Simulated scan of single mutants.
Amino acid sequence: MRTGAAAGHTGYFHEAVRYDSDEHLLAVVVPFLLGGVAAGEPTLVAFGDRNAALVRAALPAGCPVSFLGGGDVYARPAAAIRSYRSLLAGHVAAGAGQIRIVGELLPEHFGAAWDAWSRYESAINHAYDEFPLWSMCAYDERVTPPAVLADVDRTHPRTARPRDRHEPNAGYTPPEEFLLENRPYVTDPIQHGAPAAELLDPSPTRAREAVLAAEGGALPAGRIEELLLAVTEVVSNARVHGQPPVRMRIWTGEGRLVVTVEDRGPGPKDPFTGLLPVTSTTSAGLGLWIAHQYCDHVGLRRGPGGFTIRLTAGPPHTG
């Protein structure tokens, strides 16, 4: 049975919390968590260390709220979806009629990585809709850029406010539309220089060789193997499913590698490509899903000139 503002709702009840003080955050989150505990619902917090400590201190001693490591949960968008879907399925199998979660993305998600995390916030409206989930995503207006806050309103159907107010967001855009928009991503600073390599219509083998030559031992062995797998999949996709020519560029520096692969095609038709697993081994979505699992950041850009995928190994810049 659903309780609280989600009573009578089917599927995912997705809300944002835009707060401007610690008191504002606690005024929304603490009643939400205590309501879940009172109803006997699985109730979880996925905050960074600072806000997790605030919430712990505000809850009664011994309150049975589970705390997840926010940094661990939100490492990569596709991995977060996979992890949460497994967690939610487990609670439903155990008989939960509703699950409550509060989570937050941190300032390091708001720079070059935001295009991927905005896609996450949009895609989960679909990805979690089979579960009786009620979640709140907290954003601190004191440190969150205005462009990010604008996307928050577009990717969350509702905003939760103090005194149990739950208001619809007039600018909410369904994921089937949001995810297919031509959304520019922030250029990584190392892309301002000349690429270390540029290839035209490379084979997957040639693409891997170029990455190895450019990398020069800057990444741990396991990380370079993951990037090579992602590059193989993305170049193969562009050759099979895209439109020629296929152009690949590699940049190195500041502890990371950036690889872009572009073709003249429109990109995948499925808006959830890369974020949700696919069952067909011949689908373009399988390669993108693999790339999302193994790269620290995957950026997608659609435009009149074609479709570009950007793979980053190593943390994306935060500016």
Rank of each mutant, 00 (worst) to 15 (best):
N237E: 08
T273A: 15
R206Q: 13
L219V: 08
G305H: 14
R208C: 04
S236R: 13
H241K: 08
P204W: 00
I224T: 12
E215K: 06
R264D: 12
W251C: 02
V261G: 00
A194Y: 01
G299D: 07
I224K: 07
I224F: 05
Q191K: 11
H192C: 10
L300H: 11
E262D: 12
L229E: 11
G253I: 06
P304Y: 12
G217C: 05
L257F: 10
G171F: 00
I290S: 02
P268H: 09
V231Q: 00
G253Q: 07
L227H: 03
P245I: 04
P184L: 02
A213G: 13
N237H: 03
L229C: 04
M248P: 03
G305M: 15
E198I: 12
V258C: 04
P271W: 10
R247L: 10
L212T: 11
T279D: 12
P245V: 05
A170H: 01
R249G: 03
R208Y: 00
L228I: 09
S280D: 15
L288E: 06
R247G: 03
M248D: 01
V231E: 00
G305K: 14
R247N: 04
L180P: 05
G253A: 05
G255K: 03
L288Q: 05
P189K: 04
E181F: 00
L212K: 13
L200R: 15
